[in-house]
Design a binder for these strands. Structure first.
Lengths: 216, 216
DNA sequence: GTCTATATCCTGATAGAC
DNA sequence: GTCTATCAGGATATAGAC
């Protein structure tokens, strides 16, 4: 087995297992066992478990965010200026949900990416700031262009809710299938995307003042 | 220290640490150390780490869901029939966000509850089904009463997105503060609740058909 | 580059004295 | 009920032969 093969095998197995079990619950033994390589290979190729995890994540996160920006660019260019809100939202959500296409059963990449946001392993801080800072900025401005009447803080909140809807859907599709008694599933990614974009875009467009009067 | 004191100390410390580090990353030694009790006390009082985790979760989850149903009942009664969509949504989200009120700094209960949805430790299956099944059903019908034109599967999807927005907000408030450069924070829970209810209710009301035309 | 063998440490759980 | 001491196993990481 060549060097790059071994590295690849480790990355694939780690991605799968991290997605299924989480970072801390997944041992290097499990990873190297599934990959069919020696235990010591992880430390040789990656240095540590944390570095392996970073490599697994950025292998998908970097292209994902590039694709998001590519789609945003494309629809802004297409619209000769301001893209529609649905297009902007779909540029953000679509590429993430696309990852779930070939991933239905295995739940590897998909759950992994959903997990990142909530598990937030300590080593991930730097990677996060680097990788998301300008993505957030680009989408912030694109959304503000669509909804100029909104305060910036409101736009931030709504982007936060958008990410939440996405992460939760990527991460816990089994919960949905359970509670919906089979009404909903991740079988048809196009439909999920449609549902999510519709919901999020409508939420983004909500007028700023709304009654919340509860009944305590 | 009395028996019930020890049990309580363990529950408090476990709640805190589970919320900060997650289930698997938190050792019994860390818990008993923080609680100031003996290591063996966990197994004496709870039987195992899993049973302790279940106790920690249900201690907050059961009252939380009771409060949700109480508020739903109250606003349905108040409206003499169908409550407004905002009221229904606030009945679900409000009690969860209220937990974050006294919890700003420590991030104990709050992150714990946010985490449950995504970490999904194996032992939690039964507790989940028992605890959420009829809650979901009650809110499903309440929302359907507000939005009779929607298919049931669409309502399920939108409830799923609602839960995602909530869980992500409870779990990753530090991310929001980071990316929004301080524009948003969890300091003012009433404002967060307002923002979330507005967003979710508007998303729920979205017409079923909506253009998603991307630009690939 | 890949392997075996091992060092070092930490985990959950328990037995048994008090 | 609470403690000490310990078991048995699994964790990451590394040293050194090939």
């Amino acid at each position: 087995m060549s060097s790059s093969d071994t590295k690849q095998q480790i990355l694939d197995a780690a991605e799968q297992l991290f997605g299924e079990e989480g970072f801390t619950s997944t041992s290097l033994r499990a990873i190297t066992g599934a990959a069919g390589v020696n235990l010591a290979a992880v430390n040789y190729h990656f240095g540590s478990k944390s570095e392996l995890a970073k490599a697994v994540i950025s292998r998908h996160l970097v292209p994902l965010n590039q694709e998001r920006l590519r789609r945003l660019d494309a629809c802004e260019k297409n619209a000769k200026g301001t893209a529609s809100l649905e297009e902007v939202v779909a540029s953000f959500l679509g590429p993430a949900l696309d990852l779930a296409r070939e991933d239905k059963q295995t739940a590897g990449v998909t759950r992994l990416l959903g997990r990142i946001y909530s598990e937030q392993p300590p080593f991930i801080g730097e990677l996060f700031a680097d990788e998301f800072q300008d993505l957030v900025e680009r989408f912030l401005h694109a959304i503000e262009a669509c909804l100029p009447e909104l305060d910036r803080s409101v736009v931030f909140w709504r982007m936060h809710f958008m990410v939440g809807s996405m992460a939760h859907t990527l991460c816990t599709n089994n919960l949905l299938t359970l509670f919906s008694s089979g009404h909903c599933s991740m079988q048809d990614i196009d439909e999920v995307t449609q549902q999510m974009v519709t919901f999020v875009a409508a939420g983004m467009r909500a007028p700023v003042i709304s009654k919340v009067e509860g009944s305590r």
